[in-house]
Design a protein around this nucleic acid. Structure first.
Lengths: 113, 113
DNA sequence: CTGGATCCCTATGGATACTG
DNA sequence: CAGTATCCATAGGGATCCAG
């Protein structure tokens, strides 16, 4: 294998490590749909079916580390925390849409056999 | 959340379940690059850095189940098995390319901070 | 050569309870 | 409300050996 292919494989793995797993794409979708609303932690947990608080917390932290999600703490009492997608995070939205389309059509393909 | 959003989230998860994990995209890339060659098991294992035989075997089986990879057994002795990407599998290649590009550029973004 | 079987360790992720 | 800490069950994945 030429060296360039290794680079390509590693880049692919980077993407999958960031967006892989059960929840990250769903969170991205949620924040994309609700981009004009205030997205508070509890409401997000309710809006993403099946996610636990622990997971939501962890995943949001990961996404924040990668500068894909922004976290804003409001000094209310009790505190509320608002999440939103960053401009950079939006750069992945077209790809997520492709994945979404592919996933939808794949259901049909598998069902047809 | 409207019902339609749940469908979208599930479709996203379908995609990530099929292509997620450490190896599937790398296998797809391998078979895409070497689409004009005979791809035997051992050679693939050598060409995908770090993969174990067990994992390659399992991942290929998963991909075959989803009709993304074709498996051809040659009646030589000892037997050799040839793998290739299906036409349907190729439908994901453009998305993989997007993921690849995104992964490459993400390295720079993270490095810059 | 192909790839399944086994063993084993670690990462993932759920439930619950608790703190600021 | 927004998380953290703890406990625990299961899945992911590596190493090695073995059979067709």
């Amino acid at each position: 294998m030429p060296e360039q292919c290794n680079q390509a494989m590693l880049a692919l793995r980077d993407s999958i490590e960031i967006w892989g797993g059960k929840w990250k794409l769903m969170i991205l979708l949620y924040l994309t749909i609700k981009v004009n609303e205030k997205n508070y932690f509890m409401e997000m947990a309710r809006g993403i079916p099946g996610i636990s608080g622990k997971m939501l917390s962890k995943e949001l932290k990961d996404l924040e580390m990668n500068q894909l999600v922004k976290r804003i703490v409001h000094d209310t009492k009790p505190v509320t925390v608002e999440y939103s997608i960053t401009e950079y995070g939006k750069s992945f939205v077209p790809i997520a849409e492709q994945l979404l389309k592919w996933g939808l059509s794949h259901r049909k393909v598998v069902k047809e056999k």
